[in-house]
Each structure stands twice: as C-alpha cells, then as structure tokens.
Amino acid sequence: MVERALLMQTAAALRHAQRILIITGAGLSADSGLPTYRGVGGLYNGSTEDGLPIEMALSGPMLRRDPALCWKYIAQLGRACLGAQPNAGHYAIAQLQRIKPECWVLTQNVDGYHRAAGSPPERLIEIHGQLAPLFCQSCGEIDPELSEHLRRPLPPLCKQCQGILRPPVVLFEEMLPERALETLYQEMDKGFDAVLSIGTTASFPYIHEPVLRTRVSGGFTAEINPTRTDHSGSMDVFLGCRALEVLEELVSHI
C-alpha cells in the first residue's frame, strides 16, 4: 500500500509546478498487458529462438544484412503493441498535460499509447521512435499499413519500388532521433520544476539527466516503480507500486 502522505506530497508538488516532465518506461505499458522489456521495446531476455542475442537480431546492421530475420522480431513487438491499448495511467498523464500546459512527456516506449490516450504530440518526446508509419529505406515512401503487413510474408516491401520497409523505431546500434534529442535538451535548458519518473529502470544519460538537473536546481523529483532502482534513493519521493495504482488518484488532486 502506498503511503498516502507521499502521494499527497507528490500531488502538491505537481500542483504548484508549472514546468513538469513525466518520464515513462516499460512499466507503464505493463498494465496494458505488454511485457516489460529490455532494450528496444523488447519482450526478450537473453537469446532469441534463433540463438542470437536480441541486441544482434533486432539491430540496424541485422536489418540491412538479413531483413527477414530482423523483421521476425520487429513483428513480434508490433503484434504485442497492436494487440493491447492505452491504460488508465496513459489517460491520467494526458489529463495532467491538459491541466498543465507546460507538462512534457519523455517516453522510452515505442507502442504509441501516449498519442492514443491524447497526449499532445507537440509535448511528447518519443526518444526511441515509434512503430508506425512504416517507410521505405530506398525511396522514402510512407506506408501506414503496419497491421496488414504483419499478416503477410516478411519483410514488408514498398509498393512503389519494392524496397524494404521499416518502422521509425530506434533499433540496437542506431542513433537516437536527432529532432527528439534536440527538443529534449532545449526543454532541459529551460529547466523543470518537477520530474516524475514512471516504470523505468534505465540509467541512460538522456533519461537520468533531467532528474539530476531538476534536483540540482531545487526542483521536485519522484519515482513510481514496483521495485526500487539505482536512482530511487536520490528522489524526493519514491512510490513503490504500479503506475495504474496511483496515477489516476494523483492527477485527481492536481
């Protein structure tokens, strides 16, 4: 059971904050039925059924070298994401963004659930990209038919030039999207009054740096996670629970 005093402390801090950053990871989408995943949208631990580490099978070099094999795992990820929906946590975050016009979301998730729940795209930073729409690596043609392609032989091919399609997601050994990184650092330079980290254990600099910067500048930091992470001890508040258990109530007090 979450300590109510900590919940109310977090609600009060968010209520008084103007500039807020919500950082979300796989733990948020776990309540939609998606497995928590390591790396790129994952579903995997250790080796794949092909005997390769997932970091190799689901990588940019593998997409170029053996598109069918790479797409086998992109498709597993795609089917999982298309087979579920945003949960109440996603909707609560979108509601907070409606209440607070300077509230941003930085997500590692590629499932698109923040958009589906109503988070404004102009205040949503999808740092690992998203699964749709597909685009052709040869001619750049956009193809919105991800679900249809997942029912056909893989890899999917471009209708215009027969080049291989891919999603705008960051695979292993690929660079983060330049525009998303640029937006994140622009907003970090403006500073945040409060940062709320939800369902992520990642210690990537681009995930943890906003928390550190906000603490140094005197802002409020909180974490929602079922288990403690390497960064829990440095947060002002740690709520040891699933996001779904507290987010709706948290936002209701703001």
Rank of each mutant, 00 (worst) to 15 (best):
1 M>L: 15
4 R>Q: 12
5 A>K: 00
8 M>H: 00
9 Q>D: 12
12 A>H: 10
12 A>Q: 13
12 A>E: 12
13 A>N: 01
13 A>S: 04
14 L>N: 07
16 H>K: 04
17 A>S: 14
21 L>D: 02
22 I>T: 03
23 I>F: 01
24 T>E: 01
24 T>I: 00
25 G>S: 12
26 A>G: 15
26 A>H: 07
26 A>R: 03
29 S>C: 06
33 G>M: 05
36 T>H: 03
36 T>I: 13
39 G>P: 02
39 G>V: 00
40 V>L: 08
41 G>E: 09
41 G>V: 08
44 Y>Q: 05
48 T>G: 09
48 T>Q: 00
49 E>K: 15
52 L>S: 15
53 P>H: 00
63 L>P: 05
64 R>K: 12
65 R>N: 13
67 P>E: 11
68 A>T: 09
71 W>A: 10
79 R>M: 12
81 C>F: 07
82 L>Y: 04
82 L>N: 07
87 N>K: 10
87 N>R: 13
89 G>Q: 04
97 Q>D: 13
97 Q>V: 10
101 P>Q: 06
103 C>F: 02
103 C>V: 01
104 W>G: 09
105 V>H: 05
105 V>S: 07
106 L>F: 05
107 T>N: 06
107 T>S: 10
108 Q>N: 07
111 D>E: 12
112 G>V: 11
114 H>N: 10
115 R>Y: 13
116 A>M: 07
119 S>L: 02
120 P>F: 04
121 P>Q: 10
125 I>T: 14
126 E>H: 08
128 H>Q: 05
130 Q>P: 02
131 L>D: 02
131 L>F: 03
132 A>D: 10
137 Q>G: 10
137 Q>P: 00
138 S>L: 08
138 S>P: 09
139 C>N: 09
141 E>W: 05
141 E>Y: 04
143 D>H: 10
143 D>V: 09
143 D>K: 04
148 E>S: 15
153 P>C: 14
158 C>H: 01
159 K>Y: 09
159 K>M: 07
159 K>R: 14
161 C>V: 13
164 I>F: 02
165 L>Q: 10
168 P>Q: 06
168 P>E: 03
176 L>V: 04
176 L>W: 02
177 P>S: 11
178 E>M: 15
178 E>S: 14
182 E>M: 06
183 T>E: 05
183 T>C: 02
184 L>R: 00
184 L>N: 09
187 E>T: 15
188 M>P: 10
193 D>S: 06
196 L>R: 14
198 I>L: 00
200 T>M: 08
201 T>L: 13
203 S>W: 01
205 P>W: 08
205 P>V: 15
208 H>E: 11
210 P>C: 11
214 T>L: 14
219 G>I: 04
219 G>P: 03
220 F>V: 13
221 T>G: 03
222 A>N: 08
223 E>N: 02
228 R>Q: 14
232 S>K: 01
237 V>N: 15
240 G>K: 06
241 C>R: 01
242 R>G: 09
242 R>C: 11
243 A>F: 05
244 L>E: 08
245 E>A: 14
247 L>K: 00
249 E>G: 05
